[in-house]
Amino acid sequence: MAGMVKSVYLVAPMLLLCGAVSAAEFSKSERAAMDRATHAIMRDRQNNELTDIKAFCADQWGDDYVMRKHCIGQQRASMLKATSFDTTASARNMRIFIHCGEQWADGKGRTDWFMMSHCIDEQVAAAESLGE
């Protein structure tokens, strides 16, 4: 039963985001538990992304440690920018995020965050110039 409760706390935030349920349907303690679970997932994701970024940069730059350090900093800043892009604002934003994510995946389950962030900026600018 404890595993099921934990699973509900992990799924519930997604249900809230898509409007399937309202926050009023959960008690204060349930909302606090969902917040803790969401934050834990995001911390794990960020730790995994940093590991992926380090591996991505090592593949790109090998023994050039100066460039690897530069690459890691650039990738981390770009990851923060790209992941702060509001995909809930519109279906267009969600399509742009998915398009750029697919375009800049490296085939090893990692993302070139610098290029993904650039792609998002370019796609938004183009969509806006087209009046979309």
Rank of each mutant, 00 (worst) to 15 (best):
M1E: 12
G3K: 10
K6Q: 14
S7P: 01
S7T: 13
S7K: 15
L10T: 14
V11H: 09
V11A: 08
A12G: 09
P13S: 08
L15A: 14
L16E: 04
L16S: 00
L17C: 11
G19I: 08
G19N: 04
S22A: 09
S22Y: 08
A24W: 10
E25M: 15
E25T: 10
S29Q: 15
E30P: 06
A33L: 07
A33M: 11
M34F: 05
R36Q: 15
R36N: 12
R36F: 11
A37W: 05
I41H: 12
M42Y: 12
M42N: 14
M42D: 10
D44S: 13
D44E: 15
D44A: 15
D44V: 07
Q46H: 13
N47R: 14
E49A: 12
E49P: 02
E49N: 09
L50R: 12
T51D: 11
T51H: 13
D52H: 09
D52Q: 10
I53H: 01
C57Q: 03
C57F: 02
A58V: 00
D59E: 10
Q60R: 15
Q60Y: 10
G62N: 09
G62M: 06
G62D: 08
D64K: 00
D64P: 00
Y65E: 08
M67Y: 03
R68C: 07
C71H: 00
G73A: 06
G73F: 03
Q74H: 13
Q74F: 02
Q75H: 00
R76P: 06
M79S: 07
M79Y: 11
L80E: 14
L80F: 14
A82W: 02
A82F: 04
T83F: 14
F85A: 05
F85H: 03
T87H: 10
T87Q: 09
T88I: 06
T88S: 14
A91T: 09
R92K: 03
R92D: 10
N93D: 06
N93K: 06
F97E: 06
H99D: 10
C100V: 03
C100M: 05
Q103E: 15
Q103H: 11
Q103T: 15
D106V: 02
G107K: 05
K108F: 04
D112F: 00
F114Q: 06
M116S: 01
M116C: 01
S117E: 11
S117K: 02
H118L: 13
C119L: 03
C119H: 03
V124I: 13
V124F: 00
A126Q: 09
A126F: 02
S129I: 04
G131Y: 04
E132R: 11
E132S: 07
